[in-house]
């Protein structure tokens, strides 16, 4: 009896050790740690209100959508630095089409998605065809897309103040599509952008774990040459992930424009870094071949809560940035601590 007891507890400990080595467990541990921090520094109970959580989700959604595409790219052992710029470009395009040109929203959305997609495809094509390193190719796209955004907008924010022929500005009503995307539904309990973020997560999950493309993405990231020799369409896979990343940038860009009620050509600066941080904090390895979209979701929540806790406690920006840096390193080190 005594013996059985110890054997059982030993197995339990071994099981726990095994589970604790799983990336999901690590990511969840980091998230729990941040939530516990929030419970301690709850800013007079503000942390326990649903509104706080809803706003956190709403705030992180745009970054989360970018991180969805970034996850696919990083699993193929690539990186996409252009996501912030493509977001800026599509935000400008969307505002221009709907506010200034008065296009029907459906059509404007379609063109914006196509623009994002073609930016992504271009990066993918350059990377695959000319064997340019993803870092360099998407760095070039980052600069280039920002350039288009400034050219299209003339360097001005595309807002509801429309320039008239006589040189005066007249404020126009924002198109209803802006309000739709920026609204909260279910009795103001969840933001539409959050739903779009969750939808993006779901699509990526389907692609990664149910469709053949997912298998191809992991295989190419794990061992590109072995994949090619196994008959996997490496070129198509790369075009797919960079294209998907561009597509999600466009989705995020539309959301951003709706939230800000304008298309700012400077929008999305340094967003690529937040998106990468989300993916990495989730536990997806920059070397490729491992990771998953569920991890990215947890990573997004972790970063979201972190920023929320710092802001409800009114921590100044300087300390906030420093603390965020320290905590990101801490979380990633915690995940790496395996061997």
């Amino acid at each position: 009896m005594q013996l059985k007891q110890t054997k059982f507890s030993k197995n339990l400990i071994l099981d726990l050790m095994r589970i604790s080595k799983l990336p999901v467990a690590r990511a969840l541990a980091a998230l729990c740690f941040v939530i516990v921090l929030g419970m301690i520094f709850n800013a007079d109970g503000a942390f326990f209100k649903w509104d706080t959580h809803r706003d956190m989700l709403r705030h992180i959604s745009v970054f989360g959508i970018l991180a969805c595409g970034m996850t696919l790219v990083i699993i193929t052992a690539g990186i996409d630095l252009s996501v912030g710029s493509i977001l800026g470009l599509t935000a400008v395009l969307f505002s221009l089409f709907t506010i200034h040109l008065g296009w029907p929203p459906f059509f404007a959305v379609l063109i914006c998605l196509a623009a994002g997609l073609s930016c992504g495809f271009t990066s993918g094509f350059v990377i695959d065809r000319f064997k340019v390193q993803p870092f360099i190719a998407t760095l070039a796209m980052m600069v280039f897309a920002r350039g288009i955004a400034k050219w299209v907008s003339g360097g001005q924010k595309i807002s509801t103040a429309v320039l008239q022929t006589d040189g005066t500005y007249q404020y126009v009503e924002a198109p209803p599509v802006f309000n739709l995307i920026n609204s909260k539904i279910f009795h103001e309990n969840i933001a539409v952008v959050t739903l779009i973020f969750l939808g993006s997560i779901l699509i990526c999950w389907l692609v990664l774990s149910k469709l053949r493309w997912g298998r191809h993405i992991y295989a190419v990231g794990g061992n590109e040459e072995a994949s090619r020799l196994s008959g996997i369409p490496v070129t198509a896979t790369k075009l797919l992930v960079y294209g998907a990343s561009g597509f999600f940038c466009a989705v995020a860009g539309i959301c951003q424009a709706a939230q800000e009620l304008q298309g700012d050509p400077e929008a999305g600066m340094t967003y690529e870094l937040t998106a990468i941080a989300i993916v990495v904090i989730g536990g997806t390895n920059l070397l490729g071949g491992t990771g998953g979209i569920g991890l990215t979701f947890i990573g997004a929540m972790t970063i979201g809560y972190l920023e929320k806790i710092l802001s409800i406690n009114a921590v100044g920006e300087a300390s906030r940035l420093m603390l965020t840096g320290v905590i990101i390193v801490g979380a990633v080190m915690f995940q790496k601590y395996r061997k």
Partner: peptide, 9 residues
Amino acid sequence: KNNGLVFDM
């Protein structure tokens, strides 16, 4: 290792 298996799979 290099062009046969995908080690993480």
